[in-house]
């Protein structure tokens, strides 16, 4: 499997605290990678480091073998990556149509037909779930080769979330690389190629979902400290 994007010995500091204490992980090209971990485990920071949203205090970020550690977030985005944060992923003062048009012109109504009737609403007047659809839709509109999503299912109705996860595998099948962060192993993500489990700013487990235990189940999760 070719590696689409990779962290090597990455450390990230927020002010005085260190959120990642030297993380190595790789995400295969054209596949779905899932980052698991509890709040504060560093999974969001991993995504931000991949997207260039946070300065890396040590280590390297590699994109298709090229060192992009020093590359600005907007240049990484222009080079074909898109990042959907877990919260506030829309420009509230712009309409839905303007939000989508900012990134690109790929049609998104295939995935989110619900957005068609909301195109002229200001994004900050939408519900949380609708905003999440706009945020993901904005990323898809850019036709990214690398798609980074932080808990994209949060706030979505279960059916919509399942549809979204299906869409992510479709995209991967079409050659795009998908990396998403989740709190807990969801059944609909069983088909993921790789799972990285983060714990206290380090990678605690890397492997296939099946190695985590049946249906992402208790055995493997316990081992990596995932159960409640």
């Amino acid at each position: 499997m070719a590696v689409a994007v990779e962290l090597r010995g990455v450390r990230v500091r927020y002010g005085l605290l260190e959120a990642l204490h030297g993380v190595d992980l790789a995400c295969p090209a054209g596949r779905v990678t899932v980052l698991l971990g509890r709040n504060g485990s560093g999974r969001t920071t991993v995504l931000r480091a991949l997207a260039g949203d946070v300065p890396v205090s040590a280590g390297q970020v590699l994109r298709e073998g090229r060192d992009v550690t020093a590359l600005d977030a907007h240049r990484r985005a222009a080079a074909g990556s898109a990042y959907v944060p877990a919260e506030r992923g829309v420009f509230g003062s712009l309409t839905v149509a303007q939000n989508l048009a900012l990134s690109g012109d790929a049609p998104v109504d295939r995935w989110f037909p619900e957005l068609a009737r909301l195109l002229h609403r200001r994004a900050d007047t939408l519900s949380g779930g609708e905003q999440q659809m706009v945020a993901v839709g904005r990323a898809l509109a850019a036709r990214p080769r690398l798609l980074l999503l932080d808990e994209p299912g949060r706030g979505l109705a279960p059916a919509v979330a399942a549809r979204l996860h299906g869409a992510l595998f479709e995209l991967a099948a079409a050659g795009r690389t998908v990396v998403l962060a989740e709190q807990a192993p969801l059944p609909s993500l069983q088909r993921a190629a790789v799972v990285h489990v983060l714990r206290r700013g380090r990678v605690a487990f890397s492997g296939e979902p099946s190695e985590l235990g049946p249906a992402g189940g208790a055995g493997g999760a316990d081992r990596t400290g995932l159960s409640l």
Binding site: A73, H74, G89, F91, L94, L102
Partner: peptide
């Protein structure tokens, strides 16, 4: 103007959306 408003709205997100803030 819309890119500008995106930067005003949320500079960080605008950069992530590929806008040269």
């Amino acid at each position: 103007g819309i890119r500008l408003r995106a930067v005003v709205d949320n500079r960080r997100l605008a950069r992530l959306a590929g806008i040269d803030a």
